[in-house]
């Protein structure tokens, strides 16, 4: 599936958002989080990030792609983060790429960065003990068929352990 349908109504980045993203990108280039690669595009507002499954985990040797879209008032608002193409098989990741992770929604803090989000996602993958879709995958994905953003979902977070 293509995730590019989300966020069509997005406005251009505010001055503060653009400034901060530029700084994040510069910092990323100097010091990227381990296991991630930012795919260079000409867009500051949408980042495509390669994720490499960590060694000695269920996802070792696998490669995934994250699409990160930034709202006009980032970082006062969380970015929208979804997996593209084939998302990892994981109890908190739906087959449409949506990720059930509290920091992306209710627990967002503007002190977090793309880098810290990436580290959270990789740690979520690495601590997984089973490769499976969430139990409500079919139903959830059906509900999102109209291209709804995961940020519009009313999430109930599965548990804090994984």
């Amino acid at each position: 599936m293509s995730s590019s349908g989300y966020g069509q109504k997005e406005k251009v980045l505010s001055r503060i958002a653009a400034n901060r993203l530029q700084k994040e990108l510069t910092e990323w280039q100097v010091n990227p989080p381990c296991g991630f690669r930012h795919r260079v595009t000409d867009s500051l507002q949408r980042w495509i990030i390669e994720v490499h499954g960590a060694p000695n985990t269920l996802y070792e040797g696998e490669e995934f792609h994250l699409q990160v879209d930034f709202p006009e008032h980032y970082p006062m608002e969380a970015p929208q983060v979804v997996f593209m193409q084939i998302p990892p098989l994981h109890p908190h990741i739906y087959s449409n790429g949506h990720i059930c992770l509290d920091i992306l929604y209710d627990s967002w803090s503007p002190a977090m960065t793309v880098s810290s989000i990436c580290i959270s996602i990789l740690s979520m993958l690495s601590s997984s003990t089973v490769k499976a879709r969430p139990p409500d995958d079919d139903q959830y994905v059906r509900n999102c068929r109209n291209g709804r953003s995961p940020k519009e979902t009313r999430w109930w977070f599965h548990d804090d352990k994984v």
Binding site: I16, H73, M76, E77, W108, S109, P110, A111
Partner: peptide, 18 residues
């Protein structure tokens, strides 16, 4: 201005320590 915006829009917590 950034902190006050956060307190107004995001929540009444310290962005780093929560």
């Amino acid at each position: 201005s950034i902190l006050l915006e956060h307190l107004c829009k995001v929540g009444k917590f310290d962005p780093i320590t929560r």
